[in-house]
Amino acid sequence: MASEKAILDCQNNLSHLSQLQDNACFIEPTGKNQWRISSKEKPTIEVHVNMDETTGFITRLNWRQVFE
């Protein structure tokens, strides 16, 4: 639950990450307007999202739990 909450926080604040008090995610660009967000907490959850530049609307493309 904590991992999913962290992912949702990062996903919902993707357009203004610098304003987050505590960034609980790793965020990487993966292409034009596409981002990979991974939780720092275990179990690790990874999502790929697309952010519309004009509206700021974020669409989750897929997600997975990362096993080590």
Rank of each mutant, 00 (worst) to 15 (best):
M1L: 13
S3A: 15
S3M: 04
E4W: 10
I7S: 05
L8P: 02
L8I: 09
D9A: 09
C10I: 06
C10E: 04
Q11F: 09
Q11M: 15
N12P: 04
N12I: 09
N12L: 11
N12W: 08
N13Y: 00
N13I: 02
L14C: 00
L14A: 03
L14D: 01
S15L: 09
H16P: 09
S18C: 08
Q19P: 00
L20G: 00
Q21V: 00
D22H: 03
N23F: 00
C25M: 06
F26G: 06
F26N: 14
F26V: 10
F26E: 12
I27Q: 02
E28S: 14
E28K: 13
E28H: 14
E28C: 09
G31Y: 06
Q34V: 10
W35K: 04
R36M: 11
I37E: 04
I37V: 02
S38R: 14
S38Q: 14
S39Y: 03
S39R: 08
K40W: 00
K40R: 11
K42M: 13
K42H: 11
P43Q: 01
P43C: 04
I45W: 05
E46D: 04
E46A: 12
E46L: 13
V47E: 01
H48C: 10
H48A: 12
H48I: 11
V49L: 02
V49R: 07
N50E: 13
M51C: 00
D52T: 03
D52N: 15
E53I: 06
E53K: 08
T54Q: 14
T55L: 07
G56A: 03
F57T: 15
T59P: 03
T59R: 13
R60D: 03
L61R: 06
N62W: 09
R64I: 05
Q65H: 07
Q65W: 05
Q65M: 04
V66N: 02
F67T: 10
F67D: 08
E68R: 09
E68F: 09
